[in-house]
Simulated scan of single mutants.
Amino acid sequence: MSNGKMAIELLVEIVSDIHPYITAIHIREKQKRARELFQTVELLTKNNIPLSKIMINDRADVALVTGARGVQLAFHSLDAASVKEKFPKLRIGSSIHSYLEGRKAKEKGADYVLYGHVFHSQSKPGKSPNGLEELKKLSNLDMDVIAIGGITPVNTEQVLKAGAKGIAVMSGVLEARDPLLAVKAYRNALHNGGE
């Protein structure tokens, strides 16, 4: 997941190295306009990043125009049901913080939910984490739950045992000294934790 803090050229360089080891890249560049997001996707695809791995934060229009896999919706975004109705080919994720929000997202037609933040996170300083107990409840929704927030290779197994189908990581990869080595550590944790 991009963090909105780095030059797009550096992001593309990192993603070019790590994309064989990840299932999706979430373009989360809240300050960028539609044209800039479009250009980011173009740059990624010129560097052999498949559109099938690209999710766009909040902007269904950009996801549709670029041919990206889908859109990640937040509480302030368009309603998932409306996006699903108008753009049925897009994969739709909803960002949630509780079981109740997860249930609503499922009712609205989200394909998966992104739940967080699970643990203390650098991107949410001073905010208490939502924890593993709520994540355990979410496993009853019968939909994919992706966990985010303070996840490390060491605690990945706990997250999977609590019911997450996968993890999303920002600083643990993008701010690592060696992003490729970091991604491989997460991938190993996912495979070992899923057994």
Rank of each mutant, 00 (worst) to 15 (best):
G4P: 01
A7T: 00
E13I: 05
E13W: 08
V15E: 01
D17V: 08
Y21L: 14
Y21A: 13
I25F: 01
I25S: 01
I27P: 01
R28G: 05
R28D: 02
E29D: 05
Q31P: 01
T40V: 01
T40L: 10
N48E: 13
L51D: 03
N57Q: 04
N57V: 02
D58C: 00
D61M: 08
V62L: 01
V62C: 02
A63M: 02
A68V: 01
L78T: 10
L78C: 05
S82K: 14
K84V: 06
K84F: 09
P88T: 10
K89V: 00
I92W: 07
I92V: 09
S95T: 15
I96P: 07
H97N: 15
L100Q: 15
L100M: 11
E101M: 07
E101F: 14
K104G: 04
V113H: 08
V113Q: 03
L114P: 00
H120Q: 08
G126S: 13
G126K: 11
P129D: 07
N130E: 13
G131S: 15
G131P: 12
L132E: 04
S139L: 02
L141N: 13
V145D: 12
I148D: 09
I151D: 13
T156N: 13
K161L: 10
K165D: 14
G166T: 08
A168G: 10
A168M: 06
G172F: 08
E175R: 14
D178P: 04
A182Y: 04
K184H: 11
A185I: 04
N188V: 14
N188G: 07
A189E: 10
G194T: 12
E195F: 14
